[in-house]
Design a protein around this nucleic acid. Structure first.
Ligand SMILES: [Mn+2]
Ligand SMILES: [Mn+2]
Ligand SMILES: [Zn+2]
Ligand SMILES: [Zn+2]
Lengths: 136, 136
DNA sequence: AGTTATAATGTAATCATTACAAATTTGACA
DNA sequence: TGTCAAATTTGTAATGATTACATTATAACT
Protein backbone atom coordinates (compact mmCIF):
# COMPACT_ATOMS: atom_id res chain seq x y z
CA UNK A 1 0.00 0.00 0.00
CA UNK A 2 2.44 2.63 1.21
CA UNK A 3 6.07 1.80 0.56
CA UNK A 4 8.57 2.79 3.19
CA UNK A 5 10.40 4.87 0.64
CA UNK A 6 7.28 6.81 -0.22
CA UNK A 7 6.61 7.46 3.45
CA UNK A 8 10.20 8.59 3.99
CA UNK A 9 9.96 10.95 1.07
CA UNK A 10 6.65 12.28 2.32
CA UNK A 11 8.05 13.07 5.76
CA UNK A 12 11.20 14.62 4.36
CA UNK A 13 9.15 16.90 2.15
CA UNK A 14 7.44 18.14 5.29
CA UNK A 15 10.78 18.63 7.07
CA UNK A 16 10.27 15.73 9.46
CA UNK A 17 13.16 13.32 9.86
CA UNK A 18 11.87 9.86 9.01
CA UNK A 19 12.80 7.91 12.11
CA UNK A 20 11.44 4.41 12.53
CA UNK A 21 8.74 5.30 15.08
CA UNK A 22 7.62 8.22 12.95
CA UNK A 23 7.39 6.06 9.86
CA UNK A 24 5.36 3.49 11.73
CA UNK A 25 2.99 6.03 13.20
CA UNK A 26 2.46 7.58 9.78
CA UNK A 27 1.96 4.19 8.18
CA UNK A 28 -0.62 3.34 10.81
CA UNK A 29 -2.52 6.57 10.30
CA UNK A 30 -2.56 6.17 6.53
CA UNK A 31 -3.40 2.50 6.48
CA UNK A 32 -6.30 2.43 8.89
CA UNK A 33 -7.76 5.92 8.43
CA UNK A 34 -9.55 5.36 11.71
CA UNK A 35 -8.79 8.60 13.56
CA UNK A 36 -6.96 6.84 16.39
CA UNK A 37 -5.93 8.29 19.74
CA UNK A 38 -2.33 8.35 20.90
CA UNK A 39 -3.12 5.40 23.10
CA UNK A 40 -4.59 3.36 20.26
CA UNK A 41 -1.55 4.01 18.12
CA UNK A 42 0.76 3.03 20.95
CA UNK A 43 -1.09 -0.22 21.58
CA UNK A 44 -1.18 -1.08 17.90
CA UNK A 45 2.55 -0.55 17.44
CA UNK A 46 4.10 -1.70 20.68
CA UNK A 47 4.09 -5.36 19.63
CA UNK A 48 6.09 -4.60 16.54
CA UNK A 49 8.30 -2.01 18.30
CA UNK A 50 8.71 -3.35 21.83
CA UNK A 51 10.92 -0.43 22.88
CA UNK A 52 8.28 2.10 21.86
CA UNK A 53 7.35 4.64 24.48
CA UNK A 54 4.02 6.37 24.73
CA UNK A 55 5.85 9.65 25.06
CA UNK A 56 7.37 9.01 21.65
CA UNK A 57 3.91 8.61 20.21
CA UNK A 58 2.88 11.93 21.70
CA UNK A 59 6.09 13.59 20.53
CA UNK A 60 5.59 12.21 17.05
CA UNK A 61 1.99 13.33 16.85
CA UNK A 62 2.86 16.83 18.02
CA UNK A 63 5.60 16.95 15.41
CA UNK A 64 3.17 15.77 12.77
CA UNK A 65 0.65 18.41 13.69
CA UNK A 66 3.11 21.28 13.61
CA UNK A 67 4.46 20.05 10.25
CA UNK A 68 0.98 19.47 8.87
CA UNK A 69 1.51 15.74 8.46
CA UNK A 70 -1.53 15.14 10.65
CA UNK A 71 -4.49 17.01 12.05
CA UNK A 72 -5.83 16.69 15.57
CA UNK A 73 -9.51 15.86 15.80
CA UNK A 74 -11.12 17.08 19.02
CA UNK A 75 -14.72 16.11 18.61
CA UNK A 76 -15.66 16.16 22.27
CA UNK A 77 -13.96 16.77 25.54
CA UNK A 78 -12.24 13.39 25.70
CA UNK A 79 -9.10 12.19 24.00
CA UNK A 80 -7.64 13.81 20.93
CA UNK A 81 -7.80 11.75 17.75
CA UNK A 82 -5.39 12.10 14.85
CA UNK A 83 -5.87 12.10 11.13
CA UNK A 84 -3.31 11.92 8.34
CA UNK A 85 -5.85 13.34 5.91
CA UNK A 86 -4.98 17.00 6.16
CA UNK A 87 -7.24 18.55 3.54
CA UNK A 88 -10.30 20.20 5.04
CA UNK A 89 -13.17 17.84 5.73
CA UNK A 90 -15.81 17.29 8.36
CA UNK A 91 -15.96 14.66 11.07
CA UNK A 92 -19.03 12.86 12.29
CA UNK A 93 -18.83 10.97 15.58
CA UNK A 94 -21.43 8.30 16.19
CA UNK A 95 -22.74 8.43 19.74
CA UNK A 96 -23.31 4.69 19.77
CA UNK A 97 -20.33 2.98 18.15
CA UNK A 98 -18.00 5.95 18.75
CA UNK A 99 -16.57 5.70 15.25
CA UNK A 100 -15.51 8.89 13.54
CA UNK A 101 -16.58 9.26 9.91
CA UNK A 102 -15.27 11.67 7.30
CA UNK A 103 -17.49 13.76 5.13
CA UNK A 104 -16.90 16.41 2.51
CA UNK A 105 -18.03 19.91 3.21
CA UNK A 106 -17.58 23.09 1.24
CA UNK A 107 -17.62 26.08 3.55
CA UNK A 108 -17.18 28.60 0.75
CA UNK A 109 -20.94 28.90 0.34
CA UNK A 110 -21.63 28.89 4.06
CA UNK A 111 -21.57 32.59 4.63
CA UNK A 112 -19.86 33.52 7.85
CA UNK A 113 -20.92 36.79 9.40
CA UNK A 114 -18.89 38.47 12.08
CA UNK A 115 -15.36 37.44 11.14
CA UNK A 116 -14.14 40.55 9.38
CA UNK A 117 -10.68 41.37 10.66
CA UNK A 118 -10.07 37.84 11.91
CA UNK A 119 -7.23 35.80 10.45
CA UNK A 120 -8.41 32.21 10.13
CA UNK A 121 -5.70 29.55 10.43
CA UNK A 122 -7.89 26.49 10.47
CA UNK A 123 -11.45 25.34 10.73
CA UNK A 124 -12.84 22.21 12.27
CA UNK A 125 -16.31 20.89 11.68
CA UNK A 126 -17.57 18.19 14.01
CA UNK A 127 -20.99 16.63 13.90
CA UNK A 128 -22.51 14.18 16.33
CA UNK A 129 -25.37 11.75 16.03
CA UNK A 130 -26.03 8.21 14.84
CA UNK A 131 -24.26 6.54 11.95
CA UNK A 132 -26.25 4.46 9.44
CA UNK A 133 -25.26 1.23 11.19
CA UNK A 134 -26.54 2.47 14.53
CA UNK A 135 -29.76 4.33 13.61
CA UNK A 136 -32.57 2.15 14.85
CA UNK B 1 -30.28 42.60 33.26
CA UNK B 2 -31.66 39.17 34.05
CA UNK B 3 -34.12 39.13 36.94
CA UNK B 4 -34.02 36.14 39.21
CA UNK B 5 -37.64 35.44 38.40
CA UNK B 6 -36.93 35.34 34.68
CA UNK B 7 -34.03 32.97 35.24
CA UNK B 8 -36.17 30.75 37.45
CA UNK B 9 -38.87 30.64 34.83
CA UNK B 10 -36.34 29.86 32.13
CA UNK B 11 -34.90 26.91 34.04
CA UNK B 12 -38.33 25.58 34.95
CA UNK B 13 -39.38 25.67 31.32
CA UNK B 14 -36.41 23.46 30.58
CA UNK B 15 -37.29 21.10 33.45
CA UNK B 16 -34.37 22.12 35.62
CA UNK B 17 -35.10 22.93 39.23
CA UNK B 18 -33.91 26.46 39.89
CA UNK B 19 -31.64 25.94 42.85
CA UNK B 20 -29.45 28.79 43.99
CA UNK B 21 -26.20 27.48 42.50
CA UNK B 22 -27.95 26.75 39.21
CA UNK B 23 -29.41 30.23 39.06
CA UNK B 24 -26.03 31.75 39.74
CA UNK B 25 -24.26 29.66 37.11
CA UNK B 26 -26.90 30.53 34.56
CA UNK B 27 -26.75 34.20 35.48
CA UNK B 28 -22.98 34.14 35.07
CA UNK B 29 -23.16 32.48 31.66
CA UNK B 30 -25.78 34.93 30.41
CA UNK B 31 -24.19 38.04 31.84
CA UNK B 32 -20.63 37.58 30.67
CA UNK B 33 -21.13 35.58 27.47
CA UNK B 34 -17.45 34.68 27.74
CA UNK B 35 -17.55 30.92 27.20
CA UNK B 36 -16.07 30.15 30.62
CA UNK B 37 -14.69 26.85 31.83
CA UNK B 38 -16.07 25.10 34.90
CA UNK B 39 -13.08 26.36 36.82
CA UNK B 40 -13.66 29.96 35.79
CA UNK B 41 -17.29 29.78 36.83
CA UNK B 42 -16.32 28.26 40.16
CA UNK B 43 -13.75 30.95 40.86
CA UNK B 44 -16.13 33.70 39.86
CA UNK B 45 -18.92 32.48 42.13
CA UNK B 46 -17.15 31.08 45.16
CA UNK B 47 -16.81 34.50 46.78
CA UNK B 48 -20.52 35.08 46.66
CA UNK B 49 -21.38 31.44 47.50
CA UNK B 50 -18.65 30.37 49.93
CA UNK B 51 -20.08 26.88 50.30
CA UNK B 52 -19.99 26.26 46.56
CA UNK B 53 -18.31 23.08 45.49
CA UNK B 54 -16.60 22.59 42.16
CA UNK B 55 -18.48 19.33 41.79
CA UNK B 56 -21.70 21.32 41.94
CA UNK B 57 -20.49 23.47 39.07
CA UNK B 58 -19.76 20.35 37.04
CA UNK B 59 -23.08 18.79 38.00
CA UNK B 60 -24.90 21.97 37.07
CA UNK B 61 -23.18 22.26 33.72
CA UNK B 62 -23.90 18.65 32.86
CA UNK B 63 -27.52 19.21 33.78
CA UNK B 64 -27.62 22.34 31.66
CA UNK B 65 -26.17 20.51 28.68
CA UNK B 66 -28.60 17.62 28.85
CA UNK B 67 -31.51 20.06 29.22
CA UNK B 68 -30.21 22.31 26.47
CA UNK B 69 -29.73 25.26 28.78
CA UNK B 70 -26.08 25.38 27.74
CA UNK B 71 -23.79 24.01 25.06
CA UNK B 72 -20.30 22.66 25.62
CA UNK B 73 -17.63 24.25 23.47
CA UNK B 74 -14.66 21.97 22.84
CA UNK B 75 -12.44 24.02 20.62
CA UNK B 76 -9.21 22.20 21.30
CA UNK B 77 -8.06 19.37 23.49
CA UNK B 78 -7.97 21.40 26.69
CA UNK B 79 -10.82 22.34 28.98
CA UNK B 80 -14.44 22.41 27.97
CA UNK B 81 -16.04 25.83 27.80
CA UNK B 82 -19.73 26.50 28.24
CA UNK B 83 -22.16 28.74 26.44
CA UNK B 84 -25.71 29.69 27.35
CA UNK B 85 -26.35 30.69 23.74
CA UNK B 86 -27.80 27.47 22.43
CA UNK B 87 -28.78 28.41 18.90
CA UNK B 88 -26.29 27.20 16.31
CA UNK B 89 -23.32 29.46 15.77
CA UNK B 90 -19.61 29.19 15.17
CA UNK B 91 -16.74 29.75 17.59
CA UNK B 92 -13.42 31.36 16.84
CA UNK B 93 -10.59 30.91 19.31
CA UNK B 94 -7.75 33.39 19.14
CA UNK B 95 -4.39 31.67 19.48
CA UNK B 96 -2.90 34.71 21.20
CA UNK B 97 -5.42 36.06 23.70
CA UNK B 98 -7.29 32.73 23.96
CA UNK B 99 -10.65 34.49 23.80
CA UNK B 100 -13.50 32.68 22.11
CA UNK B 101 -15.61 34.76 19.72
CA UNK B 102 -19.03 33.96 18.32
CA UNK B 103 -19.88 34.23 14.67
CA UNK B 104 -22.94 33.50 12.59
CA UNK B 105 -22.76 30.73 10.08
CA UNK B 106 -25.42 29.26 7.86
CA UNK B 107 -24.59 25.68 7.03
CA UNK B 108 -27.63 25.19 4.80
CA UNK B 109 -25.67 26.23 1.74
CA UNK B 110 -22.53 24.36 2.74
CA UNK B 111 -23.29 21.18 0.92
CA UNK B 112 -22.28 18.14 2.91
CA UNK B 113 -21.48 15.07 0.88
CA UNK B 114 -21.24 11.66 2.46
CA UNK B 115 -23.79 11.94 5.25
CA UNK B 116 -26.75 10.18 3.71
CA UNK B 117 -28.18 7.77 6.25
CA UNK B 118 -26.61 9.62 9.16
CA UNK B 119 -28.82 11.17 11.83
CA UNK B 120 -27.28 14.47 12.89
CA UNK B 121 -27.94 15.56 16.45
CA UNK B 122 -25.66 18.55 16.62
CA UNK B 123 -22.94 20.34 14.75
CA UNK B 124 -20.03 22.32 16.09
CA UNK B 125 -17.94 24.70 14.08
CA UNK B 126 -14.66 25.85 15.59
CA UNK B 127 -12.17 28.13 13.90
CA UNK B 128 -8.73 29.08 15.11
CA UNK B 129 -6.47 31.97 14.27
CA UNK B 130 -5.88 35.56 15.31
CA UNK B 131 -8.57 37.96 16.43
CA UNK B 132 -8.57 41.56 15.17
CA UNK B 133 -6.92 42.79 18.39
CA UNK B 134 -4.07 40.32 18.05
CA UNK B 135 -3.32 40.35 14.31
CA UNK B 136 -0.01 42.13 13.95
C1' DA C 1 36.65 8.03 16.06
C1' DG C 2 34.98 12.19 18.17
C1' DT C 3 31.56 15.66 18.53
C1' DT C 4 27.17 17.59 18.28
C1' DA C 5 22.31 17.66 17.33
C1' DT C 6 18.20 15.16 17.27
C1' DA C 7 15.16 11.60 18.81
C1' DA C 8 13.47 8.15 22.05
C1' DT C 9 12.67 6.50 26.59
C1' DG C 10 10.88 6.08 31.47
C1' DT C 11 9.15 8.14 35.26
C1' DA C 12 6.92 11.47 37.73
C1' DA C 13 3.91 15.29 37.75
C1' DT C 14 -0.08 17.91 36.18
C1' DC C 15 -4.65 19.01 35.58
C1' DA C 16 -9.43 18.56 34.12
C1' DT C 17 -12.93 15.66 35.09
C1' DT C 18 -15.43 11.90 37.43
C1' DA C 19 -16.90 8.62 41.15
C1' DC C 20 -18.79 8.16 45.26
C1' DA C 21 -20.53 8.45 49.83
C1' DA C 22 -22.09 11.57 53.25
C1' DA C 23 -24.54 15.74 54.41
C1' DT C 24 -27.91 19.09 53.33
C1' DT C 25 -31.89 20.99 51.31
C1' DT C 26 -36.34 20.76 49.16
C1' DG C 27 -41.05 19.84 48.58
C1' DA C 28 -45.07 16.98 49.17
C1' DC C 29 -48.14 15.51 52.35
C1' DA C 30 -50.18 14.41 56.82
C1' DT D 1 -45.87 22.42 61.60
C1' DG D 2 -43.58 17.87 61.57
C1' DT D 3 -42.20 13.95 58.85
C1' DC D 4 -40.17 11.69 55.22
C1' DA D 5 -38.42 10.66 50.63
C1' DA D 6 -36.26 12.56 46.71
C1' DA D 7 -33.21 15.67 44.84
C1' DT D 8 -29.26 18.42 45.38
C1' DT D 9 -24.91 19.73 47.19
C1' DT D 10 -20.54 18.87 49.18
C1' DG D 11 -15.73 17.07 49.99
C1' DT D 12 -12.50 13.88 48.98
C1' DA D 13 -10.38 10.47 46.46
C1' DA D 14 -9.62 8.40 42.06
C1' DT D 15 -9.12 8.49 37.14
C1' DG D 16 -7.03 9.20 32.84
C1' DA D 17 -5.05 11.83 29.20
C1' DT D 18 -1.34 14.61 28.55
C1' DT D 19 3.05 16.93 29.70
C1' DA D 20 7.64 17.86 31.94
C1' DC D 21 11.94 16.51 32.30
C1' DA D 22 16.19 14.13 32.88
C1' DT D 23 18.58 10.26 30.84
C1' DT D 24 19.88 7.31 27.13
C1' DA D 25 20.28 6.17 22.39
C1' DT D 26 20.69 7.23 17.67
C1' DA D 27 21.99 9.90 13.65
C1' DA D 28 24.73 13.26 11.12
C1' DC D 29 28.86 15.38 10.28
C1' DT D 30 34.00 16.31 10.55
MN1 LIG E 1 -10.79 12.57 8.92
MN1 LIG F 1 -20.89 31.04 21.69
ZN1 LIG G 1 -22.46 3.99 14.91
ZN1 LIG H 1 -6.77 37.72 20.33
Amino acid sequence: MYSIDKLKEYLENKDVKPSYPRLKVLEYLLRYQNHPTADQIYNALVNEIPTLSKTTVYNTLHRFVESKVATPVCVDGGETHYDATVNEHGHFKCQICKKIFDFDIDLEKACEKGLTGFEILNRSINYKGFCPNCVE
